[in-house]
C-alpha cells in the first residue's frame, strides 16, 4: 500500500519546533491551534466568493489561507489556494468549483494530521 503524501510537511514542523525557547509555550502547538481556529472561516469565505462570483473576495480569502498554509508547511493546500487566488484576480473561473472541492478535501486531511499532533 502506498502511503498518501502527508498534508503537513514534517520538515517544516521540525524547523518550527527549533524556534522553541526555554520557558515559552511550544510554538508548533501555538501555531497549529491558531491555524485550526482561523481556517474554517477562510474556507467559508472562499466558498461564498466562488458561489457569488466575487473575484476580489476570492482573491483576499484565498491569499489569507495561502499564507497561513505556507507557513505551517501545508504545501498542497498552499498551492490550491494559490490557484484560487489567481482565479479571483483574473476573473477566469474555469474549474473554480472543482478547485474548491479539492481544497476542502485537502483541508480535511490536514485537519486530521493537525488533530493527531495536538
Amino acid at each position: 500500500m502506498v502511503m498518501a503524501k502527508p498534508a503537513l510537511d514534517p520538515a517544516v514542523v521540525k524547523r518550527l519546533r527549533q524556534l522553541n525557547q526555554p520557558g515559552q509555550p511550544d510554538l508548533v502547538t501555538e501555531v497549529l491551534v491558531l491555524f485550526r481556529a482561523d481556517a474554517p472561516a477562510r474556507l467559508a469565505a472562499i466558498n461564498d466568493a466562488v458561489h457569488s462570483g466575487n473575484g476580489p473576495a476570492l482573491q483576499r480569502a484565498a491569499h489569507a489561507l495561502k499564507g497561513a498554509a505556507g507557513t505551517i508547511g501545508a504545501h498542497a493546500l498552499h498551492d490550491l489556494c494559490k490557484i484560487l487566488e489567481e482565479m479571483g484576480k483574473t476573473g477566469v473561473w474555469g474549474g473554480a468549483s472543482a478547485a474548491v472541492e479539492e481544497t476542502h478535501r485537502e483541508y480535511l486531511q490536514l485537519r486530521e494530521e493537525i488533530d493527531h499532533l495536538l
Binding site: Q21, L27, E30, D38, G67, A68, T71
Partner: peptide, 18 residues
C-alpha cells in the same frame, strides 16, 4: 505587522530567538 496570526507568530518567534 501581519493580519495572519500564524505568519505573525512564526516571524516573531524567529526574531525573538535571535
Amino acid at each position: 505587522a501581519d493580519d495572519d496570526s500564524v505568519s505573525r507568530t512564526v516571524v516573531a518567534a524567529m526574531l525573538r530567538k535571535a
